[in-house]
């Protein structure tokens, strides 16, 4: 059984008299142990797809994750599902302003796993190091540049080591060098944890080279699904 199954998923917005199909009749099966990159131009429905996968947006159709139909979950169950199994790198970070970079990461770790404080801290620091932000761990979001915030957001999602990692444009604010760091960390997580699935959304064709599977989105529909041999993240450039 596939880890993620989508059946006729639709997300329609009613704007006045017109309808906007952010997602249109999407059916899809994704296996664990894969890094899936979802490519598409601006407004093609990438973020929407991640949102419905992560259970933070509603939709028509059926989404099953690890055999459970999350589209039928109530609020509490969804919340628990997100807490235990989902890691989110938002397109726009959404860090907690009152917490430092480290605390932001710790928060996610502590919430999802039962660990001692020390372990939690070490885990958080490990991932901040991985994205190259260890030196700025005690800074608050308002003191960080855009790219730095994005990396904190990445570390926060990665440190949970979730079953389902959803990355929305995780390198949007980053230069090649820093971007590679983040992508490599993601890739490493997929490699070392074959029970997990990562969906990464981007508009950057070059980045799709790191994927096991590339999904092309256009106006809310799937254009193509192409399996491929992934390239190591440290070797790509854009």
């Amino acid at each position: 059984m596939s880890l993620v199954e989508l059946e006729n998923v639709q997300r329609v917005y009613q704007m006045g008299h017109s309808k906007i199909y952010a997602l249109k009749n999407i059916s899809l099966k994704l296996e664990s142990g894969n890094l899936v990159v979802c490519l598409g131009p601006s407004g093609s429905g990438k973020t929407t797809l991640l949102n419905v996968l992560g259970g933070i947006d509603k939709c028509e159709g059926k989404i099953c994750i690890a055999g459970k139909e999350i589209t039928r979950f109530g609020k509490r169950k969804l919340s628990r599902f997100r807490r235990k199994h989902v890691g989110f790198i938002f397109q726009f970070f959404n860090l907690l302003p009152v917490y430092s970079a480290l605390e932001n990461v710790e928060y996610a770790v502590e919430l999802s796993q039962k660990r001692s404080r020390n372990e939690t801290r070490l885990k958080a620091e490990e991932y901040l190091k991985a994205v190259g932000l260890y030196e700025k761990k005690d800074m608050f979001p308002s003191q960080l540049s855009g790219g730095e915030q994005q990396r904190v957001a990445a570390a926060r999602a990665l440190a949970k080591e979730p079953k389902l990692l959803l990355c929305d444009e995780p390198t949007g604010e980053l230069s090649v060098k820093e971007g590679r760091l983040v992508l490599a960390t993601i890739q490493k997580l997929v490699r070392t944890r074959p029970d997990t699935l990562t969906v990464l959304v981007t508009h950057n064709r070059k980045i799709s080279e790191i994927a096991d599977l590339v999904i092309s989105l256009r106006s809310g529909t799937i254009d193509s699904i192409t399996p491929q041999k992934p390239v190591d993240a440290m070797e790509i450039t854009w």
Binding site: G54, I56, K75, R76, S79, R80, F81, R82, R83, K84, V86, F88, F90, N94, L95, L96, Y107, A108, L111, S112, R156
Partner: peptide, 10 residues
């Protein structure tokens, strides 16, 4: 909203 998406219980 961020807290909720991360999975913080109500």
């Amino acid at each position: 909203a961020t807290l909720l998406t991360i999975g913080t219980p109500n």
